[in-house]
Nucleic acid binder design. Structure first.
Lengths: 221, 221
DNA sequence: GTCTATAATCAGATAGAC
DNA sequence: GTCTATCTGATTATAGAC
């Protein structure tokens, strides 16, 4: 965006296991959450990490590369959280909690804004977003099947989309100080989660995915 | 964010009616939509407007003031569009169209991201957002009342919130190249709009708000 | 009322020192 | 393998010329 253009130099880079690399990523992530992507400059990242600005370019070459690494690290973290949620006894509620996490939403928000005008970031964000959607859809389909409830007139992908969009916008607007419709939206979401998860528990009274997994692990041992 | 700090100087400013002022606002808006808020710098705005960078500071003093002016102008434009939508024979569909407008959404999106870390922008965006919500809710309430349909278990503010959030996220994700759940979401939204607006038309076959307004204007003359 | 010259600072990136 | 000195250009903002 500013300064010199990167013309694919063959300059050496710091190895991936270096401690300072992780320190710089942590600093960049915190900066991004607190002050937005525009605040993530080599100088400010380095200052927060207690290092020299040039080290950012030593470990990541360009700022774009730093952003991409940040997205990949964040997506990996999300995959772990989502996998835990899917094993929970209330997967819908658990996924809603993830989508409502203000820390995660703030970061995702910034990345989506950044993606609007950085091609490399856009591709990575879209890929990770679609992957998350697929897993969310799978969780919803399973819960619904296990509950025996049929939502006629409501295609599952639409329900998933609305819940994800609702949770995300809710958190974003809260952080901006807005509130119209928030309480009612939250009530609807909770009602929907309870409806499905109670029906599911009534059908599978003594088994939950977590318990199942635990049983499988024990029987395999 | 960079450069000197603004310490409430008493420097003179260009008058509001000056042509160059509008030219600069147009340039800033276009830049924001196309490349994001980070691209809105005095130099780039001036370059797009065919003027000198210093003129930005002459007409707006600080970049923050330029952003605030941009929000106010945009909100005024939205008020006009929404008022037209409320007079339409299909207000729900019309409001959905507004919320799905990719140009508007791109701008709103950037402003919300900017609001995350600029207090002055945050306050203005929240204010305008809440105002829009109130008008949207009013349109929905009227349509529902006129249709005679009762959505039991669905509080109006929640329905409004979901439709607005859905439309917005849909457009944003489309621009990023995502698509999971989009078709189903769109189908649900359209179905909901048709359901209410058909019931409404069946009840008020020969009268629409636009026609009513027209009648009132004529009888007053 | 309108615009320019200029200050002070911050940015990304690289070559080269340890 | 790790880090620093340094270059070039961008950015906000003000004082003062027309």
């Amino acid at each position: 965006m500013k300064g010199r253009i990167n013309v694919s130099s063959d300059r050496r880079l710091g190895i991936e296991s270096a401690e300072n690399r992780g320190v710089l990523l942590d600093a960049a992530e915190q900066l991004m959450r607190e002050e937005g992507y525009a605040a993530v400059t080599s100088r400010r990242v380095a200052a927060k990490a207690g290092l020299k600005p040039q080290l950012v370019h030593y470990y990541f070459r360009t700022m774009d590369d730093l952003f991409l690494e940040l997205i990949r690290r964040g997506a990996e973290h999300m995959r772990v959280r989502l996998a835990r949620a899917l094993e929970s006894s209330e997967p819908l509620r658990a996924v809603w909690e993830i989508c409502s996490d203000s820390q995660i939403t703030a970061l995702t928000w910034e990345f989506m804004a950044l993606a609007n005008h950085r091609k490399s970031v856009r591709a990575e964000i879209a890929r990770q977003g679609e992957e998350f959607r697929a897993l969310h859809l799978q969780a919803l389909a399973r819960t619904l099947q296990e509950s025996g409830v049929r939502l006629k007139g409501w295609p599952l992908p639409a329900v998933m989309f609305l819940m994800e969009a609702g949770a995300r916008i809710l958190v974003i607007e809260q952080s901006l100080g807005m509130s119209t419709g928030h309480a009612e939206m939250l009530a609807v979401a909770k009602k929907y989660q309870r409806l499905l998860e109670r029906a599911r528990k009534a059908r599978k009274p003594k088994s939950s995915p977590a318990a199942d997994a635990h049983r499988r692990r024990r029987s395999a041992a």
